[in-house]
Design a protein around this nucleic acid. Structure first.
Lengths: 257, 257
DNA sequence: ACCTGAACACCGTTCAAGT
DNA sequence: ACCTGAACACCGTTCAAGT
C-alpha cells in the first residue's frame, strides 16, 4: 500500500483498460454508468415485469457483481425512482401555452399515455415510488397545476385532479385490450377463447352481467375505441367540475388563490 | 421409534395440550384457522404496512411455525387475494334496487370508501392482486355492471368504468388528508410544517405552482371537503359520459347489449 | 388433519478490501 | 473512482417427518 505500488497498479489498470476497449468482447463491460443501469432496469422490467428487477438479477444482466450497482444508485428504492423519473421525462414538455386549458390538459394526458405505452412497466412502477420525490413528476405536476388554475380550480383541487389523472391513465393503459407482443393471431385467439370460457364458467345466476360480457371478449380488441372512451371519461369529469365550479355559490376544496 | 414409544408420546402430548388450553397464555395458540390467518394478516398490514405481511412474520405473530400457514393458504398470492376478498366483502350488498342509477352508483362508491377507510391497507393491496380472481370483486363488479347498464352503457364501457372507479377511489383514500392515527396535535403540526418546508425549498422559478401550494398545507386538513370533491370528480365523469352517449350518433366502445 | 424441522434458492445491504 | 468477495439477516417454498 505504498504510494509507489498505488501508482503502479493505477498505470497498469488504465493502460489495460485502454487496450481492452478495442476488443469487441469487452464492449459490453465498457464502464458502467448510472444511466445505463437505469435504462437496463427499465428494459428488464418492460420485458419480464417489475418483479424481475432485482439488484442481483440486474447486475447479472450487466455482467457485473451485485454490489457494483450500489456505486451508481443508493439502494433499490432510488433505482425504482430513477426508472420512473426517466420514463416520465417527456411528459411535461408537451404542454402548449396559448391554447385553451382543456386542449392543453388533453395534450398532457396523451403524452402520459404515450410514455406508458413506450414503457409498459410504468403503470405498475408508479405504484412503487413516492411521486413527490421524482423530478419529472414535479415538473409535470407543476405545469398541470398551471393548466388547471387556468380552468378555475384551486391549487388543492388541481393537485387532486393531477394525481387522479395520473392513476386513471395508468389503469387505462394497464388494461388496454391488445394482442400481447410476440403472439401469433392463433395464440391470441386461443387466449381470448380461454378468457371467454373463464367468464362463462361462472354461475350465471350470481354473475349474470359478467357472463353476458363474455362473448364480447372474442371480438377483436379495439384499443383505439377503448382509449378514446377512457380518456373522454377521465377528462369529462374534469370539465364537468370546471363548469360546476364556475358558479361562485358552489362549495370549494381549498382556498382560491 | 417403536409403536410403544409412539403411543407414549402421543399420550403425553394430548394430555399436555388439554391441560394447557385451560391456561390463559395458551388461548392464543388455540387451533389456527384460515379465517384468523387472513384477519391477522389484514390487521398486520393495517398497522405496519403491506410490506410487513410476510409468511414468516405473520407466522411469528400467530405463535406458529412459518410452514403451518401453508396448510390454510396455498401460497402468499392466495393470502393477499383472500385479504382483499375479505376486506371488500361488504361493498356489493350496498346497492339499492329501485333507486335511479346515479344514486345507486354513488352508494356503491361510498361503500368502497368505507371499506378502504376500515382497512387502510386495502388501496395498496388492490395493486397486488388479480381482481378477477376474487369472489367479492366479481360480485361488486356484476352489480356495478347492472347499474351502469341502466345508465345506458355497454358492458365493455361499464367494465372500464367499474375498474376506473375502483382505482379512483383507492387513490382518493390513499391521499386522504388526515392526521395519522396516534399522533398528537403538536406532532401533526410539526409534520405539516415539514411538508410545507419541503415544498417551499424547491426552486420557485421551476416549480412556481408547487411552491405556491405549500402554504395550503399548514391549514388544518379537511377530509370531508376532500372526499366530496374527489367523489364528485369521479362520478361527474360517468354522468357526463352517460349524457353524451344518450345521443345515438355518438361512437361507442363495445356493442350495446 | 394439522403442524414442525431442515433445507433450498433466492432477496437487499454492509463493510472491508482490491485495483 | 469504481468494483469485488464474503458475510448477514431476511425472504417464499418444498418435502419428509412428527403427532
Amino acid at each position: 500500500m505504498t504510494p509507489l505500488y498505488d501508482v503502479l497498479v493505477r498505470c497498469i489498470c488504465t493502460s489495460h483498460r485502454r487496450t481492452c476497449t478495442t476488443y469487441s468482447w469487452q464492449v459490453a463491460a465498457e464502464k458502467l454508468t448510472r444511466e445505463t443501469v437505469v435504462e437496463r432496469a427499465l428494459d428488464l422490467a418492460d420485458r419480464e415485469g417489475l418483479d424481475a428487477v432485482t439488484i442481483r438479477r440486474l447486475a447479472g444482466e450487466l455482467g457485473v457483481t451485485p454490489m457494483a450497482l450500489y456505486w451508481h444508485v443508493k439502494n433499490k428504492d432510488e433505482l425504482l425512482l430513477a426508472m420512473a423519473d426517466h420514463a416520465i421525462d417527456l411528459v411535461a414538455a408537451r404542454s402548449r401555452p396559448g391554447e385553451p386549458w382543456d386542449v392543453r390538459l388533453r395534450a398532457m394526458v396523451e403524452a402520459l399515455v404515450d410514455a406508458m405505452r413506450r414503457y409498459p412497466c410504468l403503470p405498475v412502477l408508479l405504484g412503487h415510488v413516492d411521486k413527490t420525490r421524482a423530478e419529472s413528476f414535479r415538473r409535470a405536476t407543476d405545469t398541470a397545476l398551471d393548466v388547471l388554475a387556468e380552468a378555475g380550480f384551486t391549487l388543492a383541487e388541481g393537485y387532486l385532479i393531477a394525481s387522479h389523472l395520473l392513476v386513471g391513465v395508468a389503469e387505462l393503459v394497464k388494461n388496454i385490450p391488445a394482442v400481447p407482443a410476440g403472439m401469433t393471431d392463433a395464440e391470441a385467439a386461443e387466449c381470448a377463447r380461454q378468457a371467454r370460457l373463464r367468464l362463462e364458467m361462472l354461475p350465471a345466476d350470481r354473475y349474470p352481467n359478467l357472463v353476458a360480457y363474455a362473448p364480447a371478449l372474442t371480438a377483436p380488441p379495439d384499443p383505439d375505441a377503448y382509449l378514446a372512451f377512457g380518456l373522454d371519461l377521465l377528462l369529462s369529469g374534469v370539465e364537468a367540475q370546471a363548469a360546476r365550479l364556475a358558479d361562485p355559490a358552489q362549495p370549494r376544496y381549498g382556498t382560491t388563490p
